[in-house]
Amino acid sequence: MARAEIAARTLRTDRWWLPPLTTFAGLLLISIYAAFRTFQGDYYWVDQYHYLTPMYSPCLTEECVPAASHFGQWFPALPGFLTPPVIIIPFLLGFRITCYYYRKAYYRAAWASPPACAVAEPHNKYTGETRFPLIAQNLHRYFFYAASVLLLINIYDAVLAFGTGLGLGNIILLVNVGLLGAYTLSCHSCRHIAGGRLKHFSKHPVRYWAWTQISKLNNRHMQLAWASLIFVCLTDLYVALVASGTISDLRFID
């Protein structure tokens, strides 16, 4: 028996193309900004107020401003156009790329697989995440571990900046780590590791409680993914503007 003969790719009458288009545009804009700032190699540290942009933290190479290298300079200066963030960006990018929410977002928006529900995809063949390279999405939890370490470093940077007083930059750094922390904690791998993998919650009340709390955050994983991504860029922009002298930091306590 054959399927019903319906030639149209979709019969949807709503603007199904708008969400993938918006997602694509958003991810593209953020990628361009992040690439520009990564390879700019400057304006990442405000010496006067100890603001370090999260995109350059930790700053581990010899070309880093010494005061910005809170954890030492482990690597020699990088050759050519390479800048300090290229050491940490793969982990941050890996965490976002393998994230269950972003997978949905870019599979739909960038690969049209599918572009929207009940809209035919343009590919002749589909193997999903059964083989290389997409089978590597199963490494998400390792990027979660790495991102958690980087989050702790970001928190350390934000706390350290309070040593010079209190300015708008401190608040921005604090909100940034709050959003990054909420996004990281709401991760599906985190939910699984905390308690999801258990068969008997009743035998592990603490892990069950943790799983319950993470599940609440996990319901907002998409919103947290976008909020944290956008706010990282805004935090970086603020630090860059202050570091370059374009604007001055709004100080509350000196």
Partner: peptide, 26 residues
């Protein structure tokens, strides 16, 4: 492994079961 978690199953479920978040991803 074929599932690429694009969540259309959850979107159309009339019982509002979180198929992707609570079954497939776990």
């Amino acid at each position: 492994g074929y599932c690429n978690i694009t969540k259309c199953c959850s979107e159309v479920c009339p019982e509002h079961i979180h198929i992707t978040d609570n079954a497939l991803i776990p």
